[in-house]
Design a protein around this nucleic acid. Structure first.
Lengths: 142, 142
DNA sequence: TTGTTGTAGTTAACGCGTTAATTACATGTG
DNA sequence: CACATGTAATTAACGCGTTAACTACAACAA
């Protein structure tokens, strides 16, 4: 059945929800001259250490062409390092650098405050439930 | 509490979920040379008939500068008409045109198939639950 | 070894997202 | 009326999203 109105359209609802959430984080990122996408890439690298470009693009939900640009920017600021994979001249391995880890650490307290506030207003139970549903949707469709 | 990994990050989960869902609709839109954003604008207008630019941008989750560009494109293809509001020379009123309605109608069957497939795989109950949670989140944060 | 096919990454082109600045018009105050 | 303030829309600048095309390297077959 088609959604009777745009508010019950799944793509629009997901978009709108992401927007209101990101509105909370955007000022923090802007204050440190990091774009949302750069931030996602940094977080994945922070979590995994060293990751190949393809996997990184996938985990950060960034397309390969965008990742190329983002790598240049992050490498230029010494947040990450870029090396060829040994044994395969095509692959590129990205690694988080000290300055990158430092940025992640520096933003953690502020992130925590924002995240806690969202969780408090929305409800811990609902948040977990929402994350579970999203995970199921993602795994089922991808 | 901070999300322990990127999969449980609300912004990333929302982004990823939207991506896998839109992947289903994108080919349909591309086949008719309509961008996602143009499509959202058309749908809102189709639902409401005539809407002022500011409200349209809000309901379609499009920023004003983007809306200006989208209006030009849609007006050029005679999908919508653009008029000044009477009584206020600043405001602009957008109205869906016959060609726009025709496009909406033409895509409806295909949309239904895609939406039904998502709903069937994900589950009707879960979909309703997800939409409810998203609506709550949106209303609470905006 | 040579040619073919496949894969990883980059580049290109065009539209949108985002913020800031600007223009045009409206409203309110003296 | 004249001026200041406020609001709607547009423009500008720069980065990302998206698709397609291209380059470089790897794997594989003859």
């Amino acid at each position: 059945m088609l959604p009777e109105n745009t508010r019950r359209s799944l793509p629009m609802a997901l978009l709108h929800a992401r927007e209101v959430v990101m509105a909370r984080f955007r000022p923090m990122l802007a204050a440190h001259d990091v774009t949302e996408q750069q931030w996602r890439v940094l977080r994945v690298l922070s979590e995994a250490g060293s990751v190949e470009a393809t996997e990184l693009a996938d985990r950060a939900s960034v397309l390969p062409p965008s990742l190329t640009r983002i790598i240049k920017a992050l490498e230029g600021r010494k947040f990450i390092t870029r090396n060829k994979a040994e044994g395969d001249g095509r692959r590129v391995v990205l690694t988080i650098a000290p300055a990158g880890s430092a940025l992640i650490d520096a933003l953690s307290p502020e992130r925590r405050v924002i995240y806690d506030d969202i969780e408090r207003r929305f409800g811990h139970e609902k948040l977990e439930q929402l994350l579970d549903l999203l995970e199921t949707l993602i795994d089922g469709e991808s």
